[in-house]
Simulated assay, not measured.
Amino acid sequence: MSTDVRGIVAAGKGEPVEVTTVRVPDPGPGEALVRVQACGVCHTDLHYREGGVSDDFPFLLGHEAAGVVEQVGAGVDDLRAGDFVVLNWRAVCGVCRACKRGEPQYCFDTHNAAQPMTLTDGTELSPALGIGAFVEKTLVHSGQCTKVDSSARPAVVGLLGCGVMAGIGAAVNTGAAGLNDTVAVIGCGGVGDGSIAGAAMVGARRVIAVDTDPRKLEWARQFGATHTINAAETDTIEGIRELTDGNGADLVVEAVGRPETYEQAFYARDLAGTVVLVGVPTPDMRLELPLLDVFARGGALKSSWYGDCLPSRDFPMLVELYQQGRLPLEKFVTEEISLDEVESAFDKMHHGDVLRSVVML
């Protein structure tokens, strides 16, 4: 059996997305059918539409989602119909070398649903990040469903499914920001503001937001930035050093994904400080640094994939902190829209007019 629902499909590179009918099969072994309630419009979805991820068109877009389990397949004993879940793209396997050494957040063989979702003519769809949630119902592996407090707002907590979690995790998990640290974040979009919120949450004494857009710098203060630097007016490295007693920051999170901003991050950290790259570069980008400087400055240069998160550990904890008023996740939601407005949301995102548009279903 299968169900026909409305969903957003990117048919070809650079083409406007369209609302069309998607055929979703009933869940098989290890799978879950989820009624999507809300899904954030993430920059990764735009990358898919532009062919920046792969050329496996057509794509079923959307992945920052929360919803309710409607049905589970054989062998699923940790989910049941009615469970409120945030979807994730790290359903760990439990048996790869990372999982076996006790680091499942680096799982090398994450799970997705085995059955494809299709168009009505049978054309198989490639779901964004193995999820595909700009759709009324989606089919995922049961491990992609993380149960959280059912009283939480779907439009808010669904954002943990990608960008916000990537940002929080880059600061807290990868960068190990802590009490009394100085933290600088270069790039104040959704991911960068996630890093700012994470650093503030764990008690960093100084959180410095860096961007060229005054609107984004103002937004950054809502998430806990104690200082801001407009990089269009002030040298980033000198600005960060001035705010850290001339030393540089203990942790610099680069949330842009460009060689020039990474170089700024490298030289804006304290000796033995840490740089975390969470911004996503394009395949053509190259980085040049004097190897002697890498040696002489010590510290750590890290990359953060999905904020080094473990959904089963991190999602419920962060939702609880949000419910307690200790993590301002609701401030990431700029607007709530319908499926028909996704293409317009991409345009707003491109121009920096929103942190997150959230599709409500």
Rank of each mutant, 00 (worst) to 15 (best):
V34W: 09
V34T: 06
V34C: 09
R35I: 02
R35L: 03
R35M: 10
Q37M: 13
Q37D: 13
Q37R: 15
Q37W: 10
A38T: 01
A38G: 03
A38F: 04
A38E: 03
C39Y: 06
C39P: 12
G40T: 00
G40H: 03
G40L: 01
V41F: 04
V41G: 00
V41R: 05
V41D: 02
C42T: 01
C42V: 01
C42E: 04
C42R: 03
H43E: 03
H43N: 08
H43K: 04
T44F: 05
T44A: 01
T44C: 00
D45Q: 02
D45C: 00
D45G: 00
L46G: 00
L46K: 05
L46S: 02
H47R: 14
H47A: 10
Y48C: 01
Y48Q: 06
Y48P: 03
Y48V: 02
R49G: 01
R49M: 12
R49H: 07
E50W: 11
E50H: 14
E50S: 11
G52Q: 13
G52Y: 08
G52C: 02
G52R: 14
V53L: 10
V53S: 04
V53T: 12
V53I: 15
S54K: 06
S54M: 04
S54D: 14
D55F: 07
D55A: 10
D55W: 07
D55I: 01
D55G: 13
D56S: 13
D56H: 14
D56Y: 08
F57Q: 02
F57C: 05
F57T: 03
F57W: 08
P58H: 02
P58Q: 06
P58S: 04
P58A: 02
F59G: 02
F59I: 01
F59D: 07
F59E: 04
F59Q: 05
L60G: 11
L60R: 10
L61W: 12
L61A: 06
L61S: 09
G62E: 09
G62K: 11
G62P: 08
G62A: 11
H63Q: 11
H63C: 08
H63R: 08
E64D: 10
E64H: 11
E64K: 05
E64M: 07
E64P: 05
E64L: 07
A65I: 00
A65M: 06
A66E: 09
A66S: 12
G67K: 07
G67W: 04
G67T: 03
G67Q: 04
G67D: 06
V68R: 12
V68I: 15
V68P: 13
V68Q: 12
V69M: 11
V69I: 14
E70M: 09
E70T: 00
E70S: 09
E70I: 04
E70C: 06
E70V: 04
Q71T: 12
Q71E: 15
Q71L: 14
V72M: 12
V72N: 13
V72E: 14
V72G: 13
V72S: 13
G73H: 10
G73P: 08
G73F: 08
A74L: 13
A74T: 15
A74S: 15
G75R: 05
G75L: 07
